[in-house]
């Protein structure tokens, strides 16, 4: 009798707790690899390492140091430039390509889609190596073949051109990827809307402004927010392209500066502070973008 009752209790309890046990692995891994490092890095931001074994509490010292650090501001400016390049150059190009590939008169769409999408399949490190050769001052494709401005341009040695070179590379790598999202959005727009507009006498531009763009709003919001987050996390491309941010930190981005402080200078507390400031910057920019694009607006 007692055994039967025990078995009953076991099955009863088992039914109650089994779902939690089944989903536990995710939460345990999430806690170990996400929550713990997050909390740990936040705490670390208030400390500074003293060698490998001990650390010192510095309060807000890392934050005040950071805001007085000219290289941090320069890296923030460089990263913002890249983000603006993404917003004003890369995404319009991606949208243009998507519209082009959605047009009826274009032939070989599948091939072109694949061709434009392919750069994203190449690892950032290889992209940087390829573009290092393209920007090469002596034998590079741009200087050698196109002879822009009639003379050699130090794309990677003149601080004025470095971020431009990084932005152009970013466009090559990511425009095709974002094009796919826009293309999916365009294909979801009902054809009747355009037909109705045409009946009302709307031209191509009016249809684009009043039908295409509003219909693409959720896709644009997604692409803009994700691209901005990616832009502010830029690291491998300029790191290899500019040999660690040279010359004169013209190619240093925030994440690159974080890496340098954490791993090259052994200032882990300062690096954690940069990480949290970057998180706050990304969060603010994302919220502003979502607000501006009306994602929080009730339909």
């Amino acid at each position: 009798m007692s055994t039967e009752r025990n078995r009953y209790i076991f099955w009863n309890q088992q039914q109650r707790y089994a779902p939690y046990i089944f989903i536990a692995p995710f939460f345990i891994l999430f806690a170990i690899f996400m929550v713990y490092p997050l909390i740990s890095s936040l705490i670390m931001g208030f400390y500074e390492m003293r060698g490998f074994q001990s650390r010192i509490f510095v309060g807000l010292g890392n934050f005040t140091d950071l805001f007085a650090d000219p290289i941090f501001w320069k890296s923030l400016l460089n990263t913002t430039l890249f983000a603006l390049g993404t917003l004003l150059l890369q995404l319009p190009i991606a949208l243009f390509l998507a519209i082009l590939l959605n047009a009826k008169f274009v032939k070989g769409k599948n091939f072109l889609r694949l061709a434009f999408f392919t750069p994203v399949l190449v690892a950032g490190v290889f992209v940087a190596i390829i573009f290092n050769l393209i920007y090469d001052q002596r034998a590079g494709l741009i200087n050698n073949e196109f002879l822009l401005f009639g003379k050699e341009i130090g794309w990677l040695s003149n601080e004025r051109y470095v971020m431009l070179a990084v932005i152009i590379t970013g466009v090559w790598q990511w425009a095709g990827y974002n094009m796919i999202f826009f293309l999916a959005g365009l294909q979801g727009i009902r054809q009747e809307l355009y037909e109705a507009a045409a009946v009302d006498g709307a031209n191509w531009w009016q249809s684009f402004i009043h039908i295409t763009l509003p219909s693409l709003r959720p896709v644009i919001a997604f692409v803009v927010v994700v691209s901005m987050i990616g832009s502010f996390q830029l690291f491998d491309l300029p790191y290899i392209l500019t040999n660690g941010g040279e010359p004169a930190d013209a190619g240093t981005t925030i994440v690159m500066y974080l890496y340098k402080n954490g791993f090259q200078f052994m200032r882990l507390g300062y690096a954690a502070t940069i990480g949290w400031v970057l998180f706050i910057i990304i969060a603010i920019i994302s919220i502003i973008q979502l607000k501006l694009l009306g994602i929080f607006r009730e339909e």
Partner: peptide, 11 residues
């Protein structure tokens, strides 16, 4: 100035 990023650059 050195061509490319360092003395061992193909440039």
């Amino acid at each position: 100035p050195v061509y490319g990023t360092w003395h061992g650059d193909p440039s």
